[in-house]
Amino acid sequence: MNYQDQNAELERRIREAERNLDIPRMTKKDYIVAMVFAGVCLVAVILGGILL
């Protein structure tokens, strides 16, 4: 591939990546679940220092 072809291919990929319509995204619920999970872990760490 010459430099122009490479550039054209990269630009094409960037356009596709910017559209990124078909990659399933993290939903608001997913974020909440992750943060609740993190919160539980943090509480466990704090309790580990106090109680054990």
Partner: peptide, 10 residues
């Protein structure tokens, strides 16, 4: 155990 799992996961 707490550190290895809970702290790491956090």
């Amino acid at each position: 155990l707490i550190g290895a799992f809970a702290a790491a996961l956090f």
